[in-house]
Design a protein around this nucleic acid. Structure first.
Length: 269
DNA sequence: ACACACTCCTGAATGC
DNA sequence: TGCATTCAGGAGTGTG
């Protein structure tokens, strides 16, 4: 499941391949993603890619005539082909490039999407996003001030992209463990020192995960097909009924806002 | 405006 | 063994 580090990794891969290349055309195999792939993408023809970047978990392809916003959902995967290849069951579309390379997008569960925006459009998705967690705008003062106002758990807070962009379930669980805060604590009850710890933990964990090419749980692959390597560093996520790596007590699993939370009741409070 | 449940989807894991 | 059910999750949408 791609979160910020996985998306960052994918973006740096496809940036190298796509920037200054020309997309000759697209071949659509299945346009039924979360929303139907729009005709502007289906009809792309000889258009240069100016830039590829990330915002939260969104991938933005900046083209001459507008931009494509891609979200990978749960199972979106890119692969790089050097020859035309028949489509498999979960393949959705190919971008045919002017150097004979092909970028293929596949998505088993179809939670992902590809949308088109004209350059003058206000952007419905990007405009609502909170600061990037690795930017200076995301700091302890910001977190402290914003959490004062919210009667939601700190985990729900972290996973809401309008407060901070790109933190999903894995990294919310891991950051809260590292900073010793139980996921069910009300965000307004987190004190300033805890905000300092939490911000530091988030930045540190995301940075390390980016270095290790992300976390592979089931579906995430880098564009070269290699798996992310951060999963072996996970301390709580997916470790239901296993022992805490700090204190050796059993980790607790709960469902919180219809998401899995994992924590240690001795190391987190 | 806010908080939270529901929804989309497929395949692996689990249950009987 | 085989069929049925449960679970995983991002984030937009709908409800109270």
């Amino acid at each position: 499941m791609p979160e910020l580090p996985e998306v960052e990794n994918i973006v740096s891969c496809i940036r190298n391949i796509l920037v200054n290349r020309i997309i000759l055309y697209t071949i659509i195999k299945n346009d039924r993603l979360r929303w139907c792939i729009p005709f502007e993408i289906k009809q792309l023809f000889n258009v240069r890619v100016f830039n590829v970047y990330r915002r939260g978990k969104y991938i933005i392809l900046k083209l001459y005539s507008g931009y494509i916003i891609i979200h990978l959902g749960m199972t979106g995967v890119f692969s790089l082909l050097f020859n035309k290849l028949n489509f498999g069951k979960h393949d959705c579309l190919d971008l045919i490039l002017d150097n004979n390379m092909i970028i293929r997008y596949s998505d088993c569960r179809k939670f992902g999407f590809w949308l088109w925006f004209n350059k003058e459009d206000k952007n419905f998705f990007l405009d609502k996003l909170g600061p990037e967690p690795l930017s200076e705008n995301f700091n302890c003062n910001y977190l402290y001030n914003l959490t004062r106002l919210r009667k939601i758990s700190i985990k729900s807070f972290l996973m809401n992209s309008k407060f901070v962009a790109g933190i999903g379930n894995i990294y919310a669980n891991e950051s809260l463990f590292q900073s010793g805060i139980i996921p069910t604590r009300l965000s307004m009850n987190i004190n300033f020192n805890e905000c300092v710890n939490l911000v530091n933990s988030i930045k540190k964990i995301l940075s390390i995960a980016i270095k290790h090419n992300g976390t592979t749980i089931k579906n995430f692959k880098q564009i070269n097909g290699k798996l992310g390597e951060f999963s072996k560093y996970l301390k709580v996520y997916g470790r239901k009924n296993k022992l805490c790596k700090k204190c050796n007590n059993l980790l607790i699993y709960i469902r919180q806002n219809q998401r899995s939370s994992f924590f240690c009741k001795f190391c987190q409070s």
